[in-house]
Computed example of a mutant assay.
Amino acid sequence: MFKSTLTIVSASLMLAFASVAPAHAAVDADAAQALFKKNDCTKCHSVDKTKKGPSLKKIAAKYKGKADGQEKVIKNITTGPKVKLDDGSEEEHKIIDSKDPAALKNVADWILSQ
Rank of each mutant, 00 (worst) to 15 (best):
M1F: 07
F2Y: 11
S4V: 14
T5F: 13
T7R: 10
I8Q: 06
I8D: 00
V9F: 15
L13E: 00
M14R: 00
M14G: 15
A16Y: 15
A16Q: 12
A18R: 04
A18D: 04
A18Y: 11
S19L: 11
A21L: 12
P22K: 07
P22F: 03
P22I: 02
P22Q: 10
A23N: 08
A23T: 10
H24G: 06
H24E: 10
H24F: 15
A25K: 13
V27H: 00
V27D: 02
D30P: 02
D30F: 05
A31N: 14
A31D: 14
A31R: 15
A31Y: 10
Q33G: 01
Q33L: 11
A34T: 14
A34D: 13
L35A: 12
K37R: 05
K38T: 13
N39M: 10
C41R: 04
C44L: 05
C44E: 00
H45Q: 06
S46F: 03
S46N: 09
V47K: 14
D48S: 13
D48A: 12
K49A: 11
K49C: 03
T50L: 09
T50R: 13
K51M: 12
K52Y: 03
G53C: 06
G53F: 02
L56H: 09
L56D: 01
K57S: 10
K57W: 01
I59L: 11
A60V: 06
A61H: 04
Y63N: 06
K64G: 07
K64V: 04
K66H: 10
D68V: 09
G69I: 09
Q70I: 13
E71D: 12
K72W: 01
K72D: 03
V73S: 04
V73D: 03
V73P: 06
I74E: 12
T78N: 07
T78Y: 05
T79C: 06
T79H: 09
T79P: 13
K82D: 06
V83M: 07
V83E: 05
K84E: 02
K84M: 06
L85R: 05
L85N: 01
L85Q: 04
D86N: 14
D86Q: 13
G88K: 00
G88E: 02
S89N: 11
S89F: 00
S89I: 04
E90K: 03
E91I: 13
E92W: 00
H93M: 15
I95Q: 03
I95R: 09
I95M: 02
I96F: 03
I96R: 04
D97C: 10
S98W: 08
S98I: 12
D100G: 00
L104W: 08
K105F: 03
K105G: 10
K105S: 14
K105I: 07
N106V: 02
V107L: 07
A108P: 08
A108V: 07
D109T: 06
D109R: 15
L112D: 02
L112S: 05
S113D: 05
S113A: 15
S113N: 09
Q114R: 12
Q114K: 15
